[in-house]
Design a protein around this nucleic acid. Structure first.
Lengths: 247, 247
DNA sequence: TGTAGAGTTCAACAAGTGTTGAATTAATGT
DNA sequence: ACATTAATTCAACACTTGTTGAACTCTACA
């Protein structure tokens, strides 16, 4: 309660603290909208789309539930707004993925990638967005689409582009290789952040990077056994051939 | 609606179809309890613990919601009962993990393991249990504990035991290696079954086994970079040192 | 035949959900 | 000083949720 004042610090508010009259406008430009957004991101990250409630978000922001609907219309819209990444991740990713001293796809690149990702979601608002997306995508159709697009467009595209520098990959092969990386990285996130498997959650970033890195590197630049249909690049891109989970 | 008759077929019921009087006992031993259990497993698999509702489960079983509470007491108890594996998986796993012709940890063992797992949850009641557990573990504390224990005890233990035949691993090292396998396999399940990433969901079992298999094999029998604290086996087992997700 | 008991349904309660509209207060522009 | 408008709260609606207790109907057994 009243966590809003602390959370939205530095935006405005020259009025004395502790005033809580009933109804009425408070100040010209309080950071309430942003406070609601941050509270929503935190709640979605912790409970997922279904588990997070408007009343809970409002309480965390120190605000009436009706204000949530006043600023963001519906719960879906609030979720979409809260899960919009604060920074466009492609540039951040490209910058983070290039190790100091050029040579993006050289040896040790996999470990560098894993370490970067682990550090990125170790403590940040990016972690909240990612966790909220992951927790919600498992049950909500909308969130599933959002996470899928987020992974496909932003993450996989960038990873494939950076890692494929100097190589001649068909788009289909690049997509497949990047998807394998996603497979490993999402499993790492799931077991470490969500499930809390002891051996994974208890390991350090460097340890995990050293162990998992070579697998990722193999997916990106190794001599893997590609599906036969991908070698001659007939580009079956974004074909969505099957969806076994019924999502 | 009235899917119960079809779902619980072959149990009993010698009365004419289409009767639906109000109240009262129907027959001596209808398979209602089992029908409710199956409906619950399906609903939990599709919507997760929070998303599945008692009324929905009852409707899927063609039964009054009160009957659900009559047989299984509360929703939590129903979930626990529905997620109890129909077959003890350790024996199934051990049998499935040993390729025809001995030599459990030889070359190609990783691909065999991946193929086995993919086929196992391709179409079965095991897939429903697993999906229900996975979908629920992301938001429900109880389900998270269940899935963690399920993975730690049943899966990881068996995998580590089978793969470590003839090797001298400390328990801590075996646990770490098996956890890395879980990392990869859970990521595969998440992207293929839940998220439906095109490149992963569209690939065949054999293709994925060929691509992912070597990674798993490396985790199990390869020369990986182990954390330094694991080499001298001071057994920090089940230590739960940290849980970043706040689960 | 009668009685105990299991199977089943009905109706409702209390709590929590997203959402809405009216009312209230303060800042701002004229 | 006055009207406008944005920010905020209150109170409620319509709905869904898990859960409960009473009632009803049939079978099984004495």
């Amino acid at each position: 309660m009243t966590a809003r004042r602390a959370a939205a610090g530095g935006q405005a508010g020259s009025r004395p603290a502790g005033d809580r009259r009933a109804g009425g406008r408070r100040a010209g430009d309080s950071g309430t909208r942003e406070a609601i957004g941050e509270a929503a991101r935190a709640q979605f990250a912790e409970h997922g789309y279904r588990g997070a409630t408007i009343r809970g978000i409002a309480a965390a922001a120190g605000v009436d539930p009706a204000l949530v609907h006043h600023y963001y219309g519906t719960k879906e819209a609030l979720f979409a707004a809260a899960m919009r990444l604060p920074v466009v991740p492609s540039e951040v990713l490209s910058a983070a993925l290039t190790p100091a001293g050029g040579m993006p796809a050289g040896p040790g690149f996999g470990a560098h990638l894993v370490r970067t990702a682990l550090q990125l979601w170790e403590s940040d608002e990016l972690k909240e967005t990612f966790l909220g997306l992951l927790r919600s995508a498992v049950t909500s159709e909308q969130a599933s689409v959002m996470l899928r697009e987020f992974i496909s467009d932003s993450i996989l595209g960038t990873v494939a582009r950076v890692a494929g520098l100097g190589r001649q990959w068909s788009p289909a092969e690049a997509e497949y290789r990047a998807a394998m990386v996603a497979t490993q990285m999402l499993g790492l996130a799931l077991t470490r952040l969500v499930l809390g498997l002891p051996a994974v959650a208890g390991a350090s970033v460097d340890e995990l990077a050293a162990t998992v890195g070579p697998s990722v590197e193999r997916y990106l630049s190794g001599d893997i056994d590609l599906p036969a249909r991908l070698v001659c690049s007939r580009r079956p891109r974004t074909a969505y051939p099957r969806r076994p989970g019924g999502i």
